[in-house]
Design a protein around this nucleic acid. Structure first.
Lengths: 248, 248
DNA sequence: ACCTGAACACCGTTCAAGT
DNA sequence: ACCTGAACACCGTTCAAGT
């Protein structure tokens, strides 16, 4: 309520330009028009400001891209507020039988990843952007940290956890390939091109014929992405569990 | 040897501009300087030609990117020339006990994928480019086709094969995430930033400390990518084998 | 401290023209 | 048939300047 800083009604209407506000607007822009539309000039326009003003709050476009990825991972953290931290900080590195192993590690990791997926589905441009980025941002690192913590609470040794991170790959963040675009379709979108392709790829064509048999429109784009995601995720989680059981 | 078309020594020295030659040069350019350097203007320069000449042989830049991906997959096909086709075309879709199941499907699929990986390692820009592309090219589709054929020859039903394709994801093509860049490193490249980050991500830091303990330089970038790739691949292949055995 | 204007070095691409 | 030149509508970014 203090009016010490000269807040005219005008400056109150237009929120001041801020790193935070720039990034939030960039996320909105990406959500509405795709990552390619996040351009310094269009972002500035959206903010009612000149392009060069952005450079006062962020060093360059890379920082903006890093920033919006981090913003999404903060959203992931919020969405997972209900989960416990699972951070049993076992200082000694010895893989002795810890008494307090959490038998539900697999279910809770699974739930957390599926929660992350729900956020990613709201921002389908994140996967492609994330692949192009090298280096974890802070929020993403914290997310990875909770995954490690969950696996550790299940009693898995750190080297198996390390392999698990690699085996999960981007699945850890809730996506595989086909989030944004229609993977599996492609040049063969129209059925003519596909029929012509079919004789060159008989095995693939046979598989598609069998799998799509209960879906009326035979054109592709028929995969149940959610089912496939969970299938692949469970394959990996079950495999990890088995590896752990074999050496425990 | 015929000189019917006016081949002066000059035109023989400079090979004629061709779709093929444009794409091969584009691959070389990407190999040497990264995918970002494949630009119509720089590509033309490399070919000793004006930028607009490229548009006579290819419709636009997208076609060039699709083209170089396809070129790499043709390289994958060549590298796998020693493999058999495994194309047992079992017309009836019934999953009855086929007498001619190939018990070595897992090993041969594994070998083919690792062969593809060796090609991808020569062209580290392919993964990122492939993710951004929607739709299989012909050579890539043929590659997928042989993967389907191999799984089918092992007796797996088509719907399990379909799940397998999704579960494998880009691993089918021989890469996971960390081909080009140093995944796992990042903002924490310098040890100062990492130490500061460590207290925010205790579980992650603990894992890294344990896993890196036998690697002298504690900075990241220490993962044995080949080992991790094979670990994840085997996890999936073993899981698929088990799923198949359970329903066979 | 915060924002702007003009300018630079790039992009992909169209279109009319050259040979 | 094959290649070119000029031009257009975009980029990200630097740098000196405004308030």
């Amino acid at each position: 309520m203090s009016m010490s800083r000269g807040n005219s009604p005008e400056t109150e209407r237009r929120a001041p330009l801020t790193r935070e506000r720039v990034l939030r607007t960039a996320v909105e822009l990406a959500d509405e028009a795709g990552a390619a539309s996040v351009t310094m000039r269009r972002l500035a326009e959206q903010l009612g400001v000149e392009p060069m003003s952005l450079y006062y709050h962020l060093p360059n476009k890379e920082a903006i891209l890093d920033g919006i990825v981090d913003l999404v991972f903060r959203e992931v953290e919020e969405s997972a507020g209900a989960f416990d931290d699972g951070g049993g900080s076992n200082e000694s590195g010895a893989p002795s039988e810890t008494p307090d192993v959490d038998a539900t590690w697999k279910a809770s990791l699974r739930a957390r990843i599926l929660a992350a997926r729900r956020v990613m589905l709201r921002h389908p441009w994140v996967p492609a952007l994330l692949e192009s980025r090298s280096g974890l941002g802070l929020a993403q690192a914290r997310y990875v940290d909770t995954v490690v913590g969950t696996l550790r609470s299940g009693g898995l040794p750190y080297d198996l956890i390390h392999h698990a991170m690699h085996a999960l790959g981007s699945r850890m963040f809730g996506f595989s390939q086909e989030l944004g675009d229609d993977a599996g379709a492609g040049d063969a979108s129209d059925s003519d091109a596909f029929a012509q392709m079919a004789e060159q790829v008989p095995n693939l064509a046979a598989m598609l014929a069998v799998v799509a048999h209960d879906d009326p429109d035979s054109t592709l784009g028929w995969c149940d992405d959610q089912f496939e995601f969970e299938f692949g995720l469970d394959l990996i989680l079950d495999g990890l569990e088995r590896q752990h059981a074999r050496t425990a």
